[in-house]
Structures are given as C-alpha cells and as structure tokens.
Amino acid sequence: MNEEIIRLQTIKKYYDESTHVLENLNLVIYKGAWTSIMGPSGSGKTTLLNIIGCLDSATAGSVFINGTEITKLSQTQLTRFRRENIGLIFQQYHLVPYLTALENVMLAQYYHGVIDEGKATDALKKVGLGHRLDHVPAHLSGGEQQRVSIARALINEPKILLADEPTGNLDQENGEIVLKLFKQLHEEGHTIILVTHNPEIAKLGQRIITVIDGKICSDSTCSSEINET
C-alpha cells in the first residue's frame, strides 16, 4: 500500500500573471489508495486533476507518475502515457452521442490500438450494462451513461482512475450504484483520485485532501464504508 505512484513537487500553474491556480503544491499518492480531493469552486482541484491526468501541463514543478517524469514529456508522449496509465471519468459523462454504449467503450480500445469486442462487452457487463450494449447515450439514463464512461475508463486497464464529480449529475439511487462501482474498483486495487464537493462521498476515500486557493489546506486520512442501501 505504501508504493508511491504519483509525486507532485512544487507544482505551479499560472494562466497569466494575475491568475495563479496552483501554488507550490506538493503531493504524494500511493498505489491502490483512494484519494478524495475537495475544495470550493475555482480552488484549483480540477486543474490539479488535469495535471495528474496529463490533460494540462504545470507552469513549473515536476510530476512523476509511476516513476516517469511526465512534465518532461512531449504532447504526443503525454497522450500515449495517458492512454496507457490513466482512466478518466467525467461529471458530464462525455460519451459520443452517435455511438452505442459498446462502441463508446471500443473507442478507447481503438485509440489504444487493440480492439476486442468481447472485452468491451465484459467491461459493460461488469458495470451492469450487459443488456444495454446497443443503446446510444440518448436512450440511457444518467447513471447508465456514467457507468458506460466508467467501463470506457477501465477498458485499457489503467493504473490510475481519475474522476471529476462522477455523481454530480446523478440522482441518489444512480449515485450510489456508481459509488459502489468505485468501491469495487478500489477493492480490486485501482488507484482512485476523486474530485467532489460532497463530504459524504469524500469520506469514502482513505484520504481527503482539501485544496483552497491553489494550495493544499488539509490532508487527512479517514476510512469509511459505502452505505449499503
């Protein structure tokens, strides 16, 4: 559990001289840990997630993921690294509207270079959508769409799962289904970093980091169980 998988060293992110999003941020995350990131809107938590997810680059500082200093990688190398190591789950699901659930999952396989319909089907079955393979996003509920995006994030077996408010657009029932999936993935050994506004959801993680004004204000460790409802 104490094997380091992510290390951020004095990370700074400036959009311009007056907009300092992250200030000298240091963070170490261990393999298999579920880390929740909290903070008010505009505090820099999504920017932090983007930097860890290789979607954005830091203005200064170093980011190491699985021993690779990603701040030294080119855009193409970053894309490849993200493809191999990171699974992304978005608040708004971001499924391609004209592709079926199965094709949305296979899209990630396509860019990874290996298309395996059977594996994509299994990934959707794992998130309880074995009966919705041929449905386009418009014919799926919000919870089902989010589960498709989780299947898509998992299909290439990433080492790290990054989720930005994954239950933010869901009702309580669907939110709980999605959180159960996260719990299951955590038990399977995935490293999870989850951005949330909801303290109850944050408590599901072993560690809660609070970011305010681009700085880590608190870093606590807690444990909890998903309410079986």
Binding site: L55, Q75, T79, R80, R82, L88, H94, L107, A108, Y111
Partner: peptide, 16 residues
C-alpha cells in the same frame, strides 16, 4: 470540439 477533446482524453494522438 468536445468530441475531439474526448478523443484526445481517451488517447487519440494528433495524427488520428
């Protein structure tokens, strides 16, 4: 734009 961003986020290189 969102679709392109999504493609990139799931690993599409610029050449794709």
């Amino acid at each position: 734009q969102k679709e392109i961003g999504l493609m990139k986020s799931v690993g599409a290189e610029n050449k794709k």
